[in-house]
Computed example of a mutant assay.
Amino acid sequence: MELLSAGGTYIRPGQVLTDRAAVSAASRWARSVSEADGVCVVHLSAGADPHAVAAELREQGFRASPNHVMRGQPLFFGGPASRPFPAPPVPYRPARGRSGVVVGLLDTGVARHRWWSGSDWYADVGPGQADAAEGAQAGHGTFLAGLLTRRAPGVSLRVVRVLDGDGVGDEATVVRALNRMREQPPAVLNLSFGCHTADDRPPPLLTDALRALPDTVAVACAGNTASDRPLWPAALPRVVGVGALDATGERPAPYSGHGLWVDACARGDWLTSSYLDGGEFSGYASWSGTSFATALVAGAIADAARGLPARQAAQQVLDPEKTRQIPDLGVLVPASL
């Protein structure tokens, strides 16, 4: 269950995230503590306010935050980014070989599809990482996978399911997934989800987890909020925050998050990609949202990273002196599908 708190911030009720150093200090509020992959979830006693507890721990110098709910971002109050629509098959040219670049895709999972049938990376996608079959955002990860593999032919995806079929997950799950990547970090991360915080400050454990991947370029969506309010992780300094353009690929999409914290933009409206096979869909869909603009930017960086370190590739793709800029949406990255 999730709770809508003051300021439009969703959190898991009765939970605070800390590292191990803060557990003793948090014990006076704790009913129990669970730990995995470097994240401690303090389950609070009845009546304890997660925001107040986290704030007090941070005042004492500890890393702590409520367990923010992360949400996928194709939805915008029933607007143009509302849902996927059936689409005819899209021409697809399989890559002639591997690019050697690995993109971490943290999302709803990835389903079987003819575009990657027989690929080495999909053979590593176990049942627990398969895309959700039901829910408002079922097929979200499969759609992103198609955009990534078309924009960066030969790329390998490392799939981690952190969102359910309704596009809902939480910060603890995401941070644990990031921490598990430290031994073999991907070149690029696609993070098409986000959250607000009550004080509009960055969540500290999420910040730490991404900072611990210094050679990885994290690319995250600016959200479908039509607002300049920072969405995390997109607004973090070392993360490429991505906004969406309309179907012309020239003008801002009306729903896109925007502001000085947005670094890049790409078309987000009416993109067509791989999707689930069933019901009215036959493996393809058209969908809109900053989630999908994010995959185009992540794919462009992954494609440029064939012969360059990922951070150098990102600087090349996002060079403001060589590429047009859109006010409050950053550097324009062509779709090139």
Rank of each mutant, 00 (worst) to 15 (best):
S5A: 11
G7M: 12
G8K: 04
I11L: 07
R12Y: 02
P13H: 06
G14K: 03
V16T: 03
D19K: 09
A21C: 01
W29K: 00
A30H: 08
E35T: 11
V42S: 03
H43F: 07
L44P: 05
S45V: 09
P50A: 04
A52M: 13
V53R: 06
R58H: 06
R63A: 14
H68I: 07
P74R: 10
F76S: 06
G79R: 12
G79W: 09
P84C: 03
A87I: 04
P89R: 10
P91Y: 04
G97H: 08
R98N: 03
R98H: 11
V102T: 14
V103S: 10
L105C: 08
D107A: 06
D107I: 06
G109S: 01
H113P: 05
G126L: 02
Q129V: 01
E134A: 08
E134T: 14
A136N: 11
Q137K: 08
F143D: 04
A152R: 04
P153E: 10
G154D: 02
V160I: 06
D166L: 00
L178V: 04
N179H: 13
M181Y: 02
N190F: 01
S192K: 12
G194C: 02
D200N: 14
R201V: 11
R201W: 06
P203T: 08
P204K: 09
L206T: 11
D208Y: 00
V217K: 03
A218R: 03
A218Y: 05
A218F: 01
A220T: 02
N224D: 11
S227A: 07
D228M: 11
R229T: 07
R229L: 05
P230G: 02
P230M: 06
L231R: 15
L231Y: 03
P233M: 05
A234H: 10
P237K: 12
P237G: 07
P237H: 13
V240G: 05
V242R: 07
G249V: 07
E250K: 15
E250H: 15
Y255I: 08
Y255T: 11
G257I: 09
G259L: 15
V262Q: 05
D263H: 12
G268W: 15
L271G: 09
L271Y: 14
S274N: 08
L276Q: 07
Y284D: 03
S288P: 05
G289E: 06
S291L: 06
F292A: 05
A293Q: 09
T294G: 01
A295K: 07
A302F: 12
A304P: 00
G307N: 08
V317L: 04
T323F: 10
R324Y: 11
I326K: 07
P327Y: 11
P327C: 00
L332P: 00
L332N: 00
A335G: 02
S336N: 13
L337M: 11
L337D: 12
